[in-house]
Deep mutational scan, measured.
Amino acid sequence: NQESVVAAQLIPINTALTLVMMTTRVVSPTGIPAEDIPRLISMQVNQVVPMGTTLMPDMVKGYA
């Protein structure tokens, strides 16, 4: 089963992602794949992401 990127903390809107903000977990439905974490660093979220929420492609500016 593929791991997806999950918020390790509350991420406010327009925050640039850092490694410490993200963790990985096997979730359903699947979100952004864990191997894309290096690509996500410094990208901004376009909404508030509560802790434990799976990051979906449409939540990250410039990802999709």
Rank of each mutant, 00 (worst) to 15 (best):
I32H: 01
T23L: 10
V60A: 01
A34D: 05
A8W: 04
T54S: 06
V45W: 02
I37A: 09
E35R: 13
A8R: 10
A34F: 06
V20I: 08
T18Q: 09
Q2H: 15
E35V: 15
I41D: 03
I11S: 00
M21V: 03
K61W: 11
V45R: 00
I37Y: 04
T24R: 14
G52N: 08
I32D: 01
M21Y: 13
P12F: 04
M59F: 11
T24S: 12
E3G: 15
M22G: 00
I41G: 02
V49I: 15
L55G: 00
G31Q: 04
V27H: 04
M21R: 03
T18H: 06
I13G: 15
T18N: 05
A34W: 05
M59Q: 04
P12D: 11
E3M: 11
T24M: 08
N46Y: 06
L17T: 00
G31E: 02
A8C: 04
V5T: 05
V6S: 03
T53I: 10
Q2G: 13
A64I: 13
P12V: 04
N1R: 06
L17N: 00
A34I: 08
G62M: 11
T23F: 07
R25M: 09
P38S: 09
T15S: 14
P29H: 06
N46E: 07
L17K: 00
M51P: 10
Q2W: 15
N14Y: 07
I13S: 09
S42I: 02
V6N: 01
T54E: 02
V45M: 05
P57Y: 10
T54W: 02
P12A: 12
E3Y: 12
T30A: 14
Q44H: 13
P38A: 05
A64L: 09
N1S: 14
K61L: 14
M51Q: 15
T30M: 14
V48I: 13
Q44G: 04
G31V: 03
Q2F: 12
M21Q: 06
Q2Y: 07
V60I: 13
V20A: 08
L10D: 13
M43D: 04
D36S: 15
A64T: 14
I37C: 03
A34Y: 05
V5L: 05
L19D: 08
S4L: 01
Q47S: 11
T23N: 09
L19F: 12
V27K: 12
P57R: 08
P50D: 09
V6P: 01
V27C: 03
Q9G: 06
S42R: 08
P38Y: 12
P50M: 11
R39L: 06
G31R: 04
P33W: 07
A34R: 12
T15P: 00
M51N: 09
I37T: 05
D36M: 14
M59I: 03
V5N: 01
G52D: 10
T54G: 02
T15L: 05
G52H: 10
P38R: 15
P57S: 08
K61D: 14
L55R: 01
I37V: 08
T15C: 03
V48S: 12
D36A: 11
M21N: 06
I41K: 06
G52I: 02
S28Y: 15
L10C: 04
K61N: 10
I32A: 02
A34H: 06
T15V: 08
A8L: 10
I13D: 12
V20L: 08
A16F: 12
G31W: 02
V60P: 00
A7M: 03
K61H: 11
P33Y: 12
S4C: 05
Q44R: 15
Q44I: 06
R39Y: 06
I13V: 15
P33R: 14
V20W: 14
L55I: 14
T30C: 04
M21C: 03
V60K: 01
T54P: 05
G62C: 04
T54A: 06
T15F: 05
S4P: 01
D36Q: 15
G31I: 03
L19R: 11
R25F: 06
V48P: 15
P29Q: 12
N14E: 07
P29I: 11
D36T: 12
V6H: 02
M59K: 02
K61F: 09
Q47H: 08
G31F: 02
V45T: 13
D58H: 14
V20E: 13
R25Q: 15
P29R: 06
L19Q: 15
E35M: 10
V48Y: 13
P29D: 05
V60F: 10
R25A: 08
P33I: 12
V6C: 04
T53D: 11
Y63M: 07
D58M: 13
L40E: 00
L17E: 00
G52C: 04
E35G: 09
A34S: 08
M51L: 12
V60E: 01
N1V: 13
I32K: 02
Q9S: 08
S4A: 03
T53A: 06
M59T: 03
M51G: 07
T30E: 11
T30G: 11
I13H: 11
S4Q: 02
V6A: 05
N14H: 13
T23I: 05
M51R: 15
I13Y: 07
M56Q: 13
S42H: 09
V60D: 01
G31K: 02
R39W: 05
L19Y: 11
P12R: 06
V49K: 00
I41S: 04
Y63R: 02
R39S: 13
D58C: 05
V6I: 12
A34E: 04
M59N: 04
P57D: 06
I11N: 00
G31D: 00
R39C: 04
